[in-house]
Design a protein around this nucleic acid. Sequence first.
DNA 1: GCCAACGTTGGC
DNA 2: GCCAACGTTGGC
Length: 157
Amino acid sequence: MTRHWLMKAEPAEESVDDFLAAPAQTLPWTGVRNFQARNFIREMSPGDGVLFYHSSCAQPGIVGIAEIAGRAEPDATQFDPANKYHDSKARREKPLWSQIAVRVVRKTRLLGLSEMRSAPALESMIVLRRGNRLSITPVTDAEWRAVLTLLDRPPAV
DNA sequence: GCCAACGTTGGC
DNA sequence: GCCAACGTTGGC
């Protein structure tokens, strides 16, 4: 079954443009170090739709449409002592964290956080809930369609 | 830089 | 298993 997700990236680390510039517009999504978000990665299937979100930046919001391009596999960065996401508790034979290939399909206009909050159709989105800090959240079919509709319109805020 | 909110850690 | 302290996220 095809599902939909919202995935947060910090553009200073990896932006939607970095994905577009990569071979096949695809990069592994690494560095997730939260169990709930990791479990979502493990539930993903190739072809799932992704809302690409920029966070911790001047203009937080949705900036592109992407899709899952592979299956969950061990996150390579957990084994690398030189990597900032290194996890000393992880073992090759017993990985703790997962990564997955993500392909950016296209950039969109910025659907800013404030515009998202002001759209009644997006009210239920987990990413908009108070105190939410999850970097990966499931998106319902209705929310997905509502976002695509909003993206086709000029900015409302 | 501030701060709310949440996850993780570790003592007991 | 409880829970206080601490660390992190992320918008502003």
